[in-house]
């Protein structure tokens, strides 16, 4: 999986810690990977836009968490991602709307 997709999978799994608290960590990680694979099929221009938004998300997470996203503890990542997903920041809010929608579809459909 390309690095951008791996990061997307990680952000999705962090989002699901609060969105689907009943999901076990390995299930959330699996949904994260499936979501990243699904979003890899976005049209070229939209995919580029999502990558830009993701860069803003990761940067914002670093500011909120006071350390780079990749060096945060899992709990800190989940807290920061939950706050960002609830924000109305341009790009950040749209990014999490897209990711949350696809992740919920994947969770409910692939679990059946």
């Amino acid at each position: 999986m390309p690095p951008a997709s791996e990061r997307l999978a990680s952000l999705t799994a962090d989002l699901l810690v609060r969105d689907l608290p009943e999901a076990a960590p390995h299930d959330a990680a699996a949904v994260g990977r499936a979501t990243a694979r699904h979003l890899a099929s976005l049209p070229v221009v939209t995919r580029a836009g999502v990558r830009v938004a993701q860069a803003v998300v990761v940067g914002s997470a670093g500011v909120l968490g006071r350390r780079p996203y990749s060096r945060m503890t899992p709990q800190a990542r989940a807290d920061v991602v939950h706050r960002l997903a609830g924000s109305s920041l341009p790009l950040v809010a749209e990014y999490f709307r897209l990711v949350r929608g696809v992740a919920l579809m994947v969770h409910h459909e692939d679990a059946r």
Binding site: R97, R100, G101, L104, M105, H108
Partner: peptide, 10 residues
């Protein structure tokens, strides 16, 4: 479908 319901509530 349940996934669509969840999407509608997202």
């Amino acid at each position: 479908r349940p996934g669509m319901i969840a999407l509608g509530l997202s």
